[in-house]
């Protein structure tokens, strides 16, 4: 069992369907990789608003741009200051 799976088990999240969950991996403060993104609500170089299956996510920073966007996967690059769940 992997580390993430262990954590999910500990918080009793193991039985939850994977689809509604979004995953985010940050690479320092210069990039973020997101899985299971619903859509892009708005885009500007200092703020990107995303819709998820449940709720939303706001990425704020400077010089943000979408490096890659396809099939629910999104890579945002730039100087990322905050990520907030809506």
């Amino acid at each position: 069992m992997g580390f993430i799976d262990n954590i999910l088990q500990s918080f009793k999240l193991g039985e939850m369907p994977a689809e509604p969950l979004f995953k985010a991996v940050m690479y320092g403060d210069c990039a973020i990789y997101l899985q299971n993104v619903g859509s892009i609500k708005s885009y500007s170089p200092d703020k990107i608003e995303l819709r998820l299956k449940k709720g939303g996510l706001t990425i704020a920073g400077e010089g943000l741009f979408v490096k890659k966007y396809c099939a629910g996967d999104l890579v945002v690059c730039g100087k990322i200051d905050t990520i907030s769940r809506i």
Partner: peptide
């Protein structure tokens, strides 16, 4: 512009290097 990106994604088109270059220009 977000609507265009979502439409492209939904139709299976991968987009790269999306940048805002002006008031209404990307």
């Amino acid at each position: 512009f977000g609507a265009l990106l979502n439409a492209l994604k939904n139709r299976g088109i991968t987009v790269y290097d999306v940048r805002k270059t002006g008031e209404k220009t990307h």
